[in-house]
Design a protein around this nucleic acid. Structure first.
Length: 106
DNA sequence: AGCGTGACACGAC
DNA sequence: GGTCGTGCCACGC
């Protein structure tokens, strides 16, 4: 995916994220690049944190580099992320997934 | 118009 | 394996 440079990262992020299929994962950095904002991984995280409660977007398919689940431990969010990924057939071990097996490529 | 803030990334030890 | 430092950059004040 490339740039629509006069739109905000948030707008494009939503579009890109909505296209990640069930059972496939992307990293923050990859998502930023796909949205046309390479290097904006931190900004991606900040925006995901602001997603509204009932969002339809598959925020749980976003993981940190190396496949780490990077949401704060002992939060409802990370518990929900584990639950959803497991339900999609993603194997999680020690809060880590095998990107070599699950990573989505645009 | 700065400046502080991160659900980050990556290389160096 | 781990920690730490540095770079990154959109977003909100």
């Amino acid at each position: 995916m490339h740039q629509q440079n006069n739109q905000s990262l948030r707008t494009i992020l939503y579009i890109v994220l909505s296209k990640i299929p069930s059972g496939r994962l992307v990293t923050y950095g990859q998502l930023a690049k796909m949205a046309g904002y390479p290097g904006a991984a931190r900004a991606v995280g900040a925006l995901l944190k602001q997603l509204p409660e009932g969002t339809q977007l598959p925020w749980h398919r976003v993981v940190a580099a190396g496949g780490r689940l990077s949401l704060p431990v002992n939060t409802p969010s990370v518990d929900e992320q584990r639950r959803r990924l497991t339900a999609e057939g993603v194997l999680i071990s020690q809060d880590r997934v095998k990107l070599t097996h699950y990573q989505w490529q645009s």
